[in-house]
Amino acid sequence: MLKIKNLKASLEDEDKQILKGIDLEIGAGEVHAIMGPNGSGKSTLSYVLSGKGGYVVDEGSATLDGADLLDMAPEERAAAGLFLAFQYPVEIPGVGNMTFLRTAVNSQRKARGEDELNAAEFLKLVRIEAKSLKIDAEMLKRPVNVGFSGGEKKRNEILQMAMLAPKMCILDETDSGLDVDAMKLVAEGVNAMRNGKRSFLIITHYQRLLDHIKPDVVHIMANGRIIKSGGPELALEVENNGYADLLNEVA
């Protein structure tokens, strides 16, 4: 599914390399988690993969089912099946949540040569998905993320993910700013989407989210590299001992 080879990337405006050679392979249907101390480059990895401006790829490659992601515009990456759930979803005053969702869904369908959904078909789909995420009609009508609580914003991300049905989902600290109940709701939304074909990359600081979304593989990232990979027990180790031991091990 997702293959990242020796990926090195820097900030465009500063001569500062953030990713210093990432190697990562996620198979179809797998759930991988990335943990790591602040500033290790986790969010940067998600931005470089999804095509945010302000970064320069110095070296390496990233492919999704063999297609070169780094060569595509963000909307092409999305149409190819990549999705990033933002750590800080952007508020867009004046653009209705429904209008946005429908434009996004239909843009992707169009890009893939599929028929666009009409208003009725779309509404039917969105109602089903919104209900399971406890998103009410009022939230759908409001401008994108404007006036949403932290929990509402994250649920709105999962709603978008459900509607767009990507094959590779990256969740960037989706647990941050969530209370226990909201986290469960989000995790259920993610778990409902797990299947043998869809893959996940979950970026998180805490073991807690991984109690709800069980990963197949856990990676520890530090200073722009993946320094250790292992099973779910690796996340527990971090939870109990922090990153110090792991960092020392590598040093």
């Binding site: 999804s50 095509g51 945010k52 401006g53 515009a73 963000p74 909307e75 990456r77 999305a78 149409a79 999705f83 990033l84 933002f86 979803p89 952007v90 867009i92 946005f100 434009t103 996004a104 869904v105 843009s107 992707q108 890009a111 994108v144 978008q160 767009l164």
Partner: peptide, 15 residues
């Protein structure tokens, strides 16, 4: 707003 542009395009909306 570039952040908003990125958000929309990351969902597949052409720039």
């Amino acid at each position: 707003d570039e952040a908003a542009i990125f958000y929309l395009t990351s969902r597949g909306v052409p720039k």
